[in-house]
Design a protein around this nucleic acid. Structure first.
Length: 823
RNA sequence: GCCGGAGUGGCGGAAUCGGCAGACGCGACGGACUCAAAAUCCGUUGAGGUUCACCCCUCGUGUGGGUUCAAGUCCCACCUCCGGCACCA
């Protein structure tokens, strides 16, 4: 093993050097060529690549190399999502500046990517933490600000006590910090937001147009956006002015609203309890609920709690006075923070009404009629009852009629409600793009003028976590001059969420060295949208929705010509070991470096492509890697043995006729080529590889024939190099050159299938009797149905099976099977 | 609870349209080469049955029904696992 291993190693490093020197993968805008933008999600420079990266980038590299050979002008870039917390944590722990730590990691990981031989255009490499990049992140912030899409407000926000910063809703997963897993608490703070909710409808509607996206991801985004149609209804307060507005998706149940519930944080609460006998108790309850953790309050099977405010309002449909409760199951963050409670037809209201002895009135009867007392809420559609003039109507119709009536009375209006919240983008951290804003005592919030960008991060800062940005303690950063009045001013010390950086990087790749603009429109027009985007499904909501939002805003600003950034999306599965995701805490991490060292880049890549289809999770297997290594060596030995013998031979090809076994092996070659081509196109990379393996197995048998035709073997070797090029680029290149080729195999066009050669002349057809396989016959491919039928019926095994029974029916599937139905 | 995806040999996985279930790889077993081993090459390998002299039979794709000449694939009901959302009114 060691000697051969040495050879493969030196092959890889040799070709990597050659490719780099020749800038083989450099992309430029060529108006006449068909462009293809192949993009993989850029990594965070955490230190070293993990197997998930290797898998992601191996898949992308197959696509890029294949499309290049197919004649496309391919853009295949790579860069670094280099801002982020780990760098700052490293600074705190090891006293290394974040910049230095980050650059060190980038250097390491870049070397790993190069060692794996991925076909990136390194001249387009970007680093989001460099001023050349983040000045335009800041520029885009200013544009958002100009358009009213970036704004500041005081709000209850998610706070991660460990990261010491606020988080966007999307970054809270099951009540925990997406990054570190710490339970998230809430804080009331003044923060910067992006008005993504303005785009909720478009973000949702456009999903239907994204035919190249997995249904799964689209569903996740739809759920996240959470559109629902309903009516906002004003309930007049009893015995005083004012009213309480609620949002409901069930106006048809209005007659069944027997009480109201408001969120503890609802602004009307103090007013409602003013002068009420139990005001102090209500106040105490509200305080207690507010203290509770978000997660505790949102916990699944938690008993709902509430208290009567003493205030009442009037149900506009029935004219009844109904009580107003404060309840912990109503959230201030959704709708109006108040609900009309219909216990008969809502499970939550039902539980609450039971607990506090509130009236339950059925207003919708199931189709089968009403029997007995309600034991649980009836939430389905039905026929209206106890609803005045609407009785007897189907509830769906009453929905519309009641909504009409409310609108006519000025008591309500139809409304579309979204679950999506605005994107909280400010972070109380150092290692991010500073928000380009200055606070002036006289002028207020003043944007930094474009010509003063970038707002640079100071060279040094104190990184002890304090719950506020380390920038606060960097006086040279904080002290500023007001751009408007020239007076003393204070610079914004929060930095931007790193998801802002990665929401437009794919545009920067189109024009990465532009120092005047984020990118030139014509370059973006040439390359965008991304023809194939590849990454982990964990970004289904976060990154993929933010990036879509950015693209839409930029589209509205006229900076780009397409509304959606990613035409086709492939979400790759995780890399598992022993059935679990690789993680340091489980101690099941396989370091790509070790595998590359032991087997080389080609083997490493081949294994992650072969062991599972890209979309599925991949179970790591050491012996599986061995198998791939064996296969590549098998190819290598075949080449070593035969290249000397075919050096001066011209290969068989279009127009050459060979017969018998020679024709057969050529047939296998061309059928393999057809399968590999279509398999790559539909991302069945594992079966593409297995097809090549089968071909190699076939050639191993063929080459042992005393009459093996060198011309045929030459044709096979050439095609083998071409087919392997996307999967094992180094070995393919070596074999290719050893056959005397001058140009790179990666510059060669993808070969064409010779359909005539690929076609099989004889096919084996299965003969079934009553659906059970009883025999097989070999027939000429195009034999007509009648003859097939005759041959099948006269087959000895079939005759034996028929044995006097009468043939009722014969089904012939051309080229496949015959089914004889007997009685 | 709602939404999405998946259940196939000892293991990873194949099977474009409803048409030979288990391609390819791993593992295992047997053989060749070798003084021996490694490497390599060649075979066998779903389970059970049968004089496996390679012929043949039965069963078999999570479970139970169904449609069909024919079902891993389509339909109905259910079970298990994974992912997302979850007091969203």
């Amino acid at each position: 093993m060691t000697e051969r291993h040495q050879t493969l190693q030196s092959i890889e490093e040799h070709w990597q050097a050659v490719w780099e020197e020749q800038k083989l993968y450099k992309a430029s805008e060529e108006p006449d060529a068909q462009e293809y933008y192949c993009l993989e999600m850029l990594p965070y420079p955490s230190g070293r690549l993990h197997m998930g990266h290797v898998r992601n980038y191996s898949i992308g590299d197959v696509v890029a190399r294949f499309k290049r050979m197919k004649g496309f002008n391919v853009l295949h870039p790579m860069g670094w999502d280099a801002f982020g917390l780990p760098a700052e944590n490293a600074a705190i722990q090891n006293k290394i500046p974040p910049e230095e730590w980050t650059q060190r990691n980038i250097a390491e990981m870049r070397a790993q990517l190069k060692r794996l031989g991925f076909s990136y255009d390194w001249d387009r490499e970007i680093d989001t933490s460099q001023p050349e990049y983040y000045r335009f992140t800041q520029w885009l912030f200013l544009k958002f600000f100009e358009r009213g899409l970036a704004y500041r407000k005081r709000a209850t926000v998610n706070w991660c006590p460990s990261c010491q910063t606020v988080l966007a809703n999307e970054q809270v997963v099951a009540g925990e910090c997406e990054r570190c897993g710490t339970s998230v608490t809430s804080k009331e703070l003044e923060q910067w937001f992006f008005r993504i909710t303005d785009y909720a409808e478009r973000l949702l509607a456009n999903l239907d147009k994204l035919e190249g996206w997995p249904e799964r991801v689209k569903t996740m985004q739809r759920n996240w956006i959470g559109r629902s149609e309903g009516v906002e209804i004003r309930f007049p307060l009893a015995g005083r002015d004012g009213d309480l507005t609620v949002f409901t998706t069930r106006p048809d149940t209005l007659y069944g609203a027997t009480y109201m519930v408001v969120a503890p944080e609802h602004p009307l609460v103090p007013e409602l309890i003013e002068g009420q006998p139990h005001a102090d108790e209500v106040r105490a309850f509200v305080e207690r609920v507010k203290q509770q953790d978000e997660i505790v309050r949102a916990a699944e099977d938690r008993d709902k709690e509430g208290i009567d405010t003493g205030a009442k309002c009037i149900n506009p449909a029935t004219g009844e006075e109904i009580p107003i409760y404060v309840g912990d199951y109503v959230l201030m963050g959704y709708g109006t923070g108040a609900i009309m409670a219909v216990p008969a037809h809502d499970t939550r209201d039902f539980a609450f009404a039971k607990k506090y002895g509130l009236p339950i009135r059925r207003v919708i009867a199931p189709a089968g009629g009403v029997e007995g007392e309600l034991t649980e809420a009836y939430v389905d559609e039905g026929i209206m009852v106890n609803s005045g003039e609407y009785d007897g109507l189907p509830s769906t119709e009453a929905w519309e009629r009641i909504a009409d009536w409310l609108e006519a009375q000025g008591l309500g209006r139809r409304k579309v409600q979204y679950r999506l919240r605005d994107w909280l983008i400010s972070r109380q951290r150092f290692w991010g793009a500073p928000i380009p804003i200055v606070y002036c005592a006289d002028c207020g919030i003043v944007p930094v003028p474009e010509d003063q960008l970038p707002v640079l991060l100071p060279k040094s800062a104190h990184f002890e976590p304090s719950g506020r940005s380390p920038l606060v303690d960097a006086p040279e950063f904080v002290h500023a001059e007001c751009p408007r009045c020239g007076g003393p001013a204070r610079r914004e010390t929060d930095t931007m969420d790193t998801f802002v950086d990665s929401s437009w990087y794919f545009l920067r790749y189109c024009d990465p060295r532009n120092d005047k603009q984020p990118f030139a429109r014509e370059k973006a027009d040439y390359w965008m949208g991304v023809d194939q985007y590849i990454g982990g499904v964990e970004h289904a909501i976060l990154h993929l929705m933010y990036a879509r939002f950015f693209q839409m805003v930029l589209y509205d600003m006229g900076l780009v010509g397409v509304e959606e950034p990613f035409v086709n999306l492939l979400t790759q599965g995780m890399v598992l070991k022993d059935g679990a995701k690789m993680s340091k805490s489980k101690g099941n991490v396989v370091d790509p470096n070790h595998i590359i060292e032991k087997y080389g880049a080609d083997t490493t890549r081949l294994f992650v492509l072969f062991a599972a289809p890209p979309e599925r999770d991949l179970e790591w297997s050491d012996t599986g890697v061995e198998g791939c290594y064996r296969f590549l060596n098998r190819v290598w030995r075949l080449a070593e043995e035969w290249i000397p013998k075919v050096a001066d031979v011209s290969p068989t090809g279009p127009g050459t006729e060979v017969e018998g076994p020679h024709h057969e092996i050529r047939g296998l070659l061309h059928r393999t080529l057809a399968k590999v081509t279509s398999d790559i196109e539909r991302f069945h990379l594992n079966t593409a590889i297995s097809a090549i393996m089968e071909l190699v197995n076939g050639v191993y048998a063929y080459k042992e024939r005393p009459d093996a035709d060198p011309r045929v073997i030459r044709e096979i070797l050439e095609h083998l190099a071409l087919m392997l090029a996307p999967f094992a680029p180094h070995l393919a290149e070596e074999v290719w050159h050893r056959m005397g080729m001058r140009e790179s195999v990666h510059r060669n066009p993808w070969p064409e299938v010779d359909a005539k050669v690929a076609r099989v002349d004889e096919v084996t057809m299965v003969i079934q009797v009553n659906g059970k396989v009883r025999s097989r016959i070999t027939v000429p491919r195009d034999l007509d149905e009648e003859s097939v039928r005759e041959r099948a019926l006269s087959d000895p095994k079939v005759v034996e099976q028929l044995n006097g029974k009468s043939v009722k029916r014969v089904i012939v599937v051309p080229g496949r099977l015959v089914n004889i139905v007997v009685g």
